[in-house]
C-alpha cells in the first residue's frame, strides 16, 4: 500500500489528476473526521478538508513521494485549523465564559453528564496539549479505529514509535484529567 501511495504521489507531482483523484477518495473521509475532531464543526471541517487538498494540488511540485501522504495533509490541515482559531480567538474567549446549554439529559443525568464531560475534556486535552505527531497517532487510533501497524504504515513510522506515542498521549491525558476522574 505504501508503495502504491508513492506511485500516486509521483503522479500528482507530474500533474496527474487521476492519481490525485484516487488519493482524494482514499483519504477524504479520514481527513474530514480528523479535522472535525479538532474544530467540532461539520461545515468548517468540510471547508478545511477541501482547502487542504487544494493546497496539496497547488504545491504539487514540492511533494516528496517517499514521505507519508497522511502526515502531509494532517500538517496542512492542522495549520489551517490554527489559522482559524487565531481568527476566532477573541470570540472563543467570550464563549468560554458562557455556561453550556443543549446537552441532553437521559435517565441518569449525573452519569451521562460525567461521561460526556470526560469525553469532551479528553477531546480538549488531545487538541490543546498533545504535540502534533502524538495527536495524529492518537486520533487515527481512537477515532479511525486503526491498529498500530496500520498507523505505522500510514505515517511511515515504526510500530514501536506508534506504541510509544499512544502511551505518551495517555500519560498526558491522565495528568490533565485529574479533576475529572
Amino acid at each position: 500500500m505504501a508503495e502504491q501511495e508513492q506511485i500516486l504521489l509521483q503522479g500528482i507531482k507530474n500533474s496527474d489528476k487521476t492519481a490525485f483523484n484516487q488519493l482524494f477518495f482514499d483519504f477524504h473521509d479520514t481527513l474530514f473526521r480528523f479535522v472535525a475532531y479538532r474544530v467540532q464543526d461539520g461545515d468548517l471541517a468540510e471547508d478545511i478538508t477541501q482547502e487542504t487538498f487544494l493546497r496539496v494540488w497547488r504545491n504539487r511540485e514540492s511533494i516528496q513521494p517517499e514521505k507519508s501522504f497522511f502526515s502531509l495533509i494532517a500538517r496542512i490541515s492542522t495549520n489551517l485549523c490554527y489559522d482559524h482559531f487565531r481568527h476566532m480567538e477573541v470570540r472563543h474567549r467570550h464563549e468560554d465564559l458562557l455556561p453550556e446549554f443543549g446537552k441532553s439529559h437521559f435517565d441518569d443525568p449525573e452519569a451521562v453528564n460525567q461521561a460526556t464531560m470526560l469525553q469532551e475534556e479528553i477531546q480538549r486535552v488531545v487538541n490543546d496539549k498533545l504535540p502534533d505527531k502524538c495527536r495524529n497517532i492518537f486520533i487515527l487510533s481512537r477515532i479511525e479505529g486503526k491498529s498500530n501497524p496500520e498507523i505505522a504504515e500510514l505515517l511511515g513510522l515504526s510500530v514501536r514509535t506508534v506504541e510509544n506515542q499512544i502511551y505518551r498521549a495517555l500519560k498526558v491525558l491522565k495528568k490533565n484529567l485529574k479533576n475529572y476522574l
Binding site: 477524504h28 473521509d29 474530514f32 473526521r33 472535525a36 475532531y37 464543526d41 461539520g42 471541517a45 468540510e46 461521561a115 470526560l118 469525553q119 479528553i122 477531546q123 488531545v126 492518537f138 481512537r142 477515532i143 479505529g145 495517555l170 500519560k171 491525558l173 491522565k174 484529567l177 476522574l181
Partner: peptide, 16 residues
C-alpha cells in the same frame, strides 16, 4: 488510562 482509552473513542462526529 484504560478508562481514558475507552472514553476517547466515544466521540460523535458529523458524517463526511
Amino acid at each position: 488510562q484504560k478508562l481514558i482509552w475507552e472514553r476517547s473513542a466515544q466521540v460523535e462526529l458529523p458524517s463526511p
